[in-house]
């Protein structure tokens, strides 16, 4: 693995115990729990503002299986207000805003996630597809349904975490100024 190049904007809360590899940019207001993993293997990862990445969550930017070199691989852009819950694995090629990845779900590298999607607990999504807006997937059969609205943001939880986490964990210092 090449050297790490991690940019953390002020206002973001990245715990020291998290595992960040490669070229990663963390937007302000984003919380990364200890023992969460973000690996920018194929190319840079840009995480938007106010995302929540919980324990054991894994966000991996992989080189596709049918590709040998790392050329022509776009940046993995993750939008704002996304929630990555405990022990989810997300390898999606593009992630929009306001998505929720519930515990132990798996999203493969051929999937494009747009906005307001909910991937239910334990659901495995691997086929090449573009998830439309406000899709929610749940159950053992990965049943899909389209909602009217995006899932509610977890503002209260984020506020609590912003207060509580620095009391018990070492925090990586933000090295970038507030985005304009």
């Amino acid at each position: 693995m090449s050297r790490n190049n991690i940019k953390i904007f002020s206002g973001a809360l990245v715990c020291e115990g998290s595992k960040l590899r490669g070229d990663i940019t963390v937007g302000s207001g984003t919380i990364i729990h200890p023992s969460a993993t973000v690996i920018a293997e194929a190319g840079p990862i840009v995480i938007g503002e106010n995302c929540l990445i919980e324990e054991q969550a894994k966000i991996i930017h992989r080189v596709p299986f049918d590709q040998q070199n790392k050329e022509n691989i776009p940046i993995l852009m993750i939008g704002v207000h996304n929630v990555f819950e405990v022990d989810c694995t997300v390898e999606a090629s593009k992630i929009g805003n306001n998505n929720v990845f519930e515990p132990k779900c798996f999203v493969g590298s051929r999937v494009t996630v747009t906005n307001g999607c909910t991937i239910g607990a334990g659901c495995h999504i691997t086929e090449e597809q573009i998830l439309n807006e406000n899709i929610s997937i749940c159950g053992a059969k990965c049943q899909m349904r389209e909602g009217l609205d995006k899932p509610a943001p977890q503002n209260l939880q984020m506020e609590t975490l912003l207060k509580m986490l620095p009391n018990y964990h070492y925090i990586k210092k933000p090295n970038m100024k507030q985005q304009v």
Binding site: G120, C138, Q143, R145, G147
Partner: peptide, 9 residues
């Protein structure tokens, strides 16, 4: 809470 269905839908 599971699939996000609500009565407004």
């Amino acid at each position: 809470y599971f699939c996000g269905w609500n009565s407004r839908d």
